[in-house]
Amino acid sequence: MAKRFFQSWLPSPEKVNSLKLMKIFGDRALSPQLWYVNRKSISKAMFIGTFWGILPIPFHTVLIVLTVLLFEANLPIGLILAWIMNPLTIVPILFFAFWIGSKIYHVHMINKDMLLGVFHQIIHWIQNFGHGHIDLSLAKILATGLLIEAMIFASLLFIATRLYWRWSVVKKWRERAAKEF
C-alpha cells in the first residue's frame, strides 16, 4: 500500500534525468537503486530532502543529489522535498529557527531594535567598502537554530515514513489474513 502510494506520484527516471541540473551527474542518476521504492530508500530520501530543503543555502538541490547518490536513497523524493523552502514557508521556518537559537543561547527573541541595529551595521559596512564591524551573533543564532530545526524535522519525517510504511504493511497482512478465514 505504501509502495503503491509513493510509486503513483513519482516521476519517471527519464523525466528527472531530462532536467538540466541532472546532466551534471550523467548516467549515475539513472541507477536503479536511486529509483527503487522501498522503506529504506524512501525514508532516507525523506530525511535528506527535508534536511537540505529547510536550510536556506544556494544550490541545495545539488547537495540533495550528492547526498542521495552517497546514501543510495530515492532520488525523486529527495528532490521534491527541496521545495520545502519556498516563499510561503520561509517565514515560519526562519522564525522557528530564531526561536530555537534564542533558547539555546539564552537570549531574548529578536525585537525591532535588534534588527535595526544589525541593518545599521550592514549599511555602515557597505558604505565603508567592507571596513567596519558586523555583529554576527544573529547569524550564529539563526544558523544554530536552522541546523537543529533541520535535524528535528528531518528525523520526524524519517520516523513518520517508517511508521507509515510499517502500518500499511501490517494493515495489508491483516486484510489478507481476514480474507483467508
Score class of each variant (00 low, 15 high):
L88Q: 03
E14V: 08
G130L: 09
L142A: 11
K140F: 11
K172F: 06
M1G: 10
I54V: 08
S31C: 07
T50C: 00
M151W: 01
Q7A: 11
P87W: 03
G78S: 00
A73S: 04
W52F: 14
M151E: 02
W83F: 06
I122Q: 06
V16F: 07
T67K: 08
F25N: 12
L88A: 12
I57T: 05
N111A: 10
A139M: 15
H131P: 00
I104Q: 03
G132K: 11
F25S: 12
R174Y: 07
W173E: 14
R166K: 15
F119W: 10
F6V: 10
P58N: 00
G145A: 13
W125A: 13
T144Q: 10
L19R: 09
Y105P: 02
W9P: 11
A150S: 05
I159H: 10
L157C: 10
V62W: 06
K171N: 10
A97P: 03
W167H: 08
M114D: 09
M1E: 13
D135N: 04
S12P: 08
I54D: 03
N74I: 13
Q33W: 05
E175I: 09
A160F: 02
M22F: 15
L116F: 08
G145D: 11
Q33C: 02
W99K: 11
K40I: 06
F119H: 09
M46R: 05
N74V: 03
G49C: 09
A139W: 11
R39N: 04
P56V: 12
W9L: 10
S137C: 03
H131L: 13
P11E: 03
K40Y: 02
I104M: 03
L81C: 11
K3L: 12
I57K: 06
